[in-house]
Simulated assay, not measured.
Amino acid sequence: MARFHVPTIDISAWVGPGSPDARAAVVAAVDHACRTVGFLQVVGHGIPDAVIGDLETGLDAFFALPLAEKKRFVRPSGENRGYSPPKSESLSYSLGVDPVTRMNDFFEAFNVGTSWREYPGTSATAEDYAENTWPTGVDAFAPAVQTYFDEARRVAQTLTRIFAAALRVPDDFFDDLTDHSIDVLRMNNYALPPGSIELGAELTGMGEHTDFGLVTVLWADRVAGLQVLGADGSWNDVSPAEGALLVNLGDVAARLTNDKWLSTLHRVKPPVVDGTIERRRSAAFFHDGNADAVIAPLPGFVTDEAPALYEPVTVREHITAKLAGSRAGRRNDAAVREAARVVAASRG
């Protein structure tokens, strides 16, 4: 079997002017990555270095606050906004898999997303598109995060145009699925106070999971931790190339293509370097699709030999079940196919 590899693809031909041949080459490379790995790295994405630098400064300022101060910004789990303290989640539950301990994902996070107010004239409601909570007393945070959010959304929308070409559907196919998309930016901090654990003890940075929506655009430190499940059941270390963004497909993409494109399992192990835990930061932009969009395999991916693997479901129904697993500790028993892959990997 071929060595596990996450390809790096220059998408600049789709970000700015590009020749038909250059664009076609990007489409072919993305399609191959989606069918074989479910992960890729993109360069030529057009996000200025200064925007990412400001994001890092904002993250550092917020996560440096005392835990008690950060907990002031905790929101109810179903709203997917605000602060999540360490060990308050378990991503394995989103797949219907029991983790080693009940809530053992040792990362902290802060979530912002699109508000229903940004989608006038649509069916968006506050239930699915909650207002944001912005931390007070951290002046660098909100403007830097909002600027990066807008840039990451632009990259995600560029990718959906590439996806449409790769899937040979109309250029505007994804517009109907994403014109009031549930878009969330989750900023993660993997860091532990000195002496808080015994190195070598069972500890999960973020449990194995698939992403919920259409596509994820990830900025991350070049620090070890992210692992991706290979086709042979092995876990493989993945770190972004200099200046690259990691991109992976979510469950919506897998459902649309009847699993011809992969929503690949991944996890984050504690970033231990030479026996010492090293800090790791990431910012994952989730482009999930409209809450009321009905997702089912596209006709071109369903045949007598390859029947539909999924029943139709709305994005809202799918995400609600996954969040109830990761945040509220209720195992998502609907994730049958994903759970089987986790179990198989643990036996490999």
Rank of each mutant, 00 (worst) to 15 (best):
residue 290 N to P: 14
residue 253 A to M: 15
residue 226 L to H: 14
residue 297 P to M: 01
residue 230 G to N: 05
residue 254 A to M: 02
residue 312 P to F: 04
residue 237 D to S: 13
residue 317 E to C: 12
residue 307 P to H: 04
residue 268 V to L: 09
residue 229 L to N: 03
residue 258 N to G: 10
residue 329 G to L: 10
residue 244 A to T: 00
residue 293 A to W: 01
residue 322 K to Q: 04
residue 273 V to S: 02
residue 304 D to T: 15
residue 234 S to R: 14
residue 288 D to V: 07
residue 244 A to F: 01
residue 305 E to M: 04
residue 331 R to E: 00
residue 335 A to V: 10
residue 311 E to I: 13
residue 301 F to L: 04
residue 293 A to Y: 02
residue 329 G to R: 09
residue 270 P to N: 01
residue 226 L to C: 11
residue 290 N to S: 10
residue 332 N to Y: 10
residue 327 R to G: 07
residue 284 A to F: 06
residue 270 P to L: 05
residue 240 P to A: 06
residue 236 N to K: 08
residue 278 E to Y: 06
residue 337 R to F: 07
residue 325 G to Y: 11
residue 287 H to T: 00
residue 228 V to L: 14
residue 300 G to E: 02
residue 274 D to M: 09
residue 250 G to A: 13
residue 334 A to E: 00
residue 235 W to P: 15
residue 256 L to A: 12
residue 243 G to E: 00
residue 277 I to M: 15
residue 269 K to P: 02
residue 244 A to N: 01
residue 298 L to Q: 01
residue 315 V to G: 07
residue 286 F to R: 12
residue 236 N to Q: 06
residue 271 P to S: 03
residue 303 T to S: 10
residue 318 H to S: 13
residue 319 I to L: 15
residue 226 L to P: 15
residue 294 V to A: 08
residue 229 L to V: 06
residue 307 P to I: 10
residue 295 I to C: 05
residue 298 L to Y: 05
residue 327 R to E: 00
residue 277 I to W: 12
residue 280 R to A: 04
residue 264 T to C: 11
residue 330 R to W: 06
residue 282 S to N: 05
residue 261 W to G: 06
residue 281 R to C: 11
residue 279 R to V: 09
residue 295 I to V: 15
residue 233 G to V: 07
residue 313 V to L: 14
residue 255 R to G: 12
residue 304 D to H: 04
residue 325 G to H: 12
residue 327 R to W: 01
residue 310 Y to H: 15
residue 336 V to W: 03
residue 275 G to V: 10
residue 297 P to A: 03
residue 290 N to F: 12
residue 254 A to C: 04
residue 282 S to K: 12
residue 225 G to K: 08
residue 229 L to C: 13
residue 253 A to G: 09
residue 233 G to A: 11
residue 229 L to M: 10
residue 334 A to R: 14
residue 309 L to M: 10
residue 315 V to W: 03
residue 302 V to N: 01
residue 232 D to G: 15
residue 329 G to K: 09
residue 258 N to C: 11
residue 261 W to M: 07
residue 261 W to H: 04
residue 318 H to P: 12
